[in-house]
Design a protein around this nucleic acid. Structure first.
Length: 468
RNA sequence: GGCGCUAUCGUCUAACGGUUAGGACAGAGCCCUCUCAAGGCUUAAAUAGGGGUUCGAUUCCCCUUAGCGCUACCA
């Protein structure tokens, strides 16, 4: 049984890179009939916050993909401690009583790097036990093999065969001096316990994987398969950070900008993955069907944004594509809450379908499209120019009278009446067409004017024309 | 510094060792037209540099350069 996991640590908002990792995990699981495990990696008590937990769920829920099982690492501390003890008893880890190094000390490390603190690896079991029993604080470190030729290797689903000399790996920590597990230990112990079969995560963990292989081996049992994803970076080549790049890094920004969840998922999929057939706009099912590691790239992908256009233009385009082509049924619930109650469902559907053709954001319905869904709307300045053409207002009022006198109301009737009136008054139909769109919708741009009549509906058309 | 990974248009990407190096977004132009979109057509735009291997290299190998990652009692 295939099992994948997404393991965010709650120290911020849901980062778009994390969101993409989640999506790829989800797609891989769905493609292969596997299980998606969501695990909160919250062993860093210093940095975890509830606000962050909430915002991660916010983002995940918005993506609307769901997951199958949920765990938090902080509930599983006993398991981690047991795993650490197992490794220590096998002689594969030792206590290090050296005090923690200060930040600046780490930065000014001598060339050649640091592998382990002198003396600690060789401490006798007796002395180690004695000092521990006396309450002296220690970190538990993995005893990395020091044989010259010892190679640690694994096959990565994206990057292929990876090898590294064990002598280049430092004796990393398993347990902190406060007894809490480190990320490496907790993550591997949980992966084993949760029977994760495939780990899909960011490439920033590619080199950590050598350490994880060592831990998995020490713990015994099957080692999961790995697949690392290229990172998402900013146009300046730096990794995306809130401090440096602002809200572009948070998924909630896209939700708040009026993105369709699926359109954004689709966009993120195209960053670092390709179905290799030039397809770009894809449904969820198409993504599931097409997804595989073969399509994943090995180089980092730039999220394209700038101060003038803070959101990647391709994301905007893709959102527009989905907005116009998705089933109307699925779109309606997404916009209804931002609009006043609608009195005529059929007309509402007609209007939404008409205006969506030129919208790119969910917000457009309540802003640019307001005249179609509410009586309380402003006339756009450009639209006002069209309305202020000589004779326009007066003829429009007349048109209102005539439509009121008609027993029937339809797109065709409106067109016939408008054209007839234009001819009688000796003005170009275009004058009235543009002026009526302005008067009826408040917008200088929009669907074909006669469709606008139908979208607004008989009663409102007459009202709006007569009081123009 | 050490170790690891990567390198095709501005951006996302495609190309069994043989293509006029393809597509998309963004840009420019044209068409369509009652406006604006959409759509259609056209256009500009790339194999980081240097060595190999090969009849032939974007593709395989090496070096250089650049970028990124790891090198914490963060994850």
């Amino acid at each position: 049984m295939l099992r994948v996991r997404f393991a965010p640590s709650p120290t911020g908002y849901l980062h778009i890179g994390s969101a993409r990792t989640f999506i790829f995990n989800w797609l891989y699981a769905r493609h292969n009939g596997g299980t998606v495990v969501l695990r909160l990696d919250d062993t860093d008590v210093e940095r975890n916050t509830q606000v962050s937990v909430d915002s991660i769920f916010d983002g995940l829920n918005w993506l609307d993909l769901g997951w199958d099982e949920f765990y938090r690492q902080s509930d599983r501390l006993a398991l981690h401690a047991a795993a650490a003890e197992t490794i220590r008893q096998k002689g594969l880890a030792y206590r290090d009583f050296t005090p923690a190094r200060a930040e600046d000390e780490v930065a000014s490390e001598p060339a050649g790097g640091w592998l382990f603190n002198p003396g600690m690896r060789e401490l006798s079991a007796e002395e180690s036990d004695r000092r521990a029993a006396a309450g002296e604080p220690f970190v538990l470190r993995f005893r990395v093999p020091r044989e010259e030729k010892h190679v640690v290797a694994f096959a990565d689903g994206v990057f292929g065969k990876q090898t590294k000399l064990a002598k280049d790996i430092e004796d990393f920590a398993l347990l902190r001096s406060n007894g809490m597990p480190t990320y490496h230990l907790a993550s591997c112990a949980d992966d084993v316990d949760l029977k994760i079969t495939q780990i899909i995560r960011g490439q920033d963990h590619l080199t950590n994987t050598f350490k994880h292989v060592l831990i998995f081996e020490a713990l015994g049992g099957d080692i999961p398969k790995f697949a690392h994803l290229p990172l998402l970076i900013a146009p300046d080549g730096a990794k995306l950070s809130k401090r440096k790049h602002g809200p572009v890094v948070s998924v909630t920004t896209y939700r708040d900008a009026g993105f369709l969840p699926h359109a954004y998922v689709n966009f993120l999929c195209l960053l670092g993955w390709s179905p290799k057939n030039d397809r770009e706009q894809m449904t969820r099912q198409e993504l599931v069907d097409a997804f595989g590691f073969e399509g994943i790239n090995r180089s980092n992908a730039v999220v394209n944004f700038s101060e003038e256009s803070p959101i990647d233009a391709k994301a905007l385009w893709l959102n527009g594509q989905h907005l116009r082509s998705m089933p109307l049924e699925e779109l309606l619930p997404l916009i209804r809450s931002s609009l006043p109650p609608q009195d005529d469902e059929e007309r509402f559907r007609l209007a939404v379908d008409a205006v969506r053709q030129r919208f790119t954001s969910l917000h457009d319905f309540a802003t640019r499209g307001k005249g179609y869904f509410s009586d309380d709307f402003e006339i756009d300045p450009v639209a006002l120019d069209k309305l202020n053409q000589p004779q326009a207002r007066e003829i429009l009022r007349e048109l209102g009278e005539r439509l009121e006198a008609q027993p029937e109301f339809s797109e065709a009737i409106c067109e016939a009446e408008l054209r007839k009136l234009a001819e009688e008054r000796g003005v170009k139909p275009g004058l009235l067409i543009n002026a009526s769109r302005a008067a009826l919708s408040g917008q200088a741009v929009g669907p074909s004017a006669f469709l606008v009549f139908a979208c607004v509906g008989r009663q409102r058309v007459i009202e709006r024309l007569k009081k123009v």
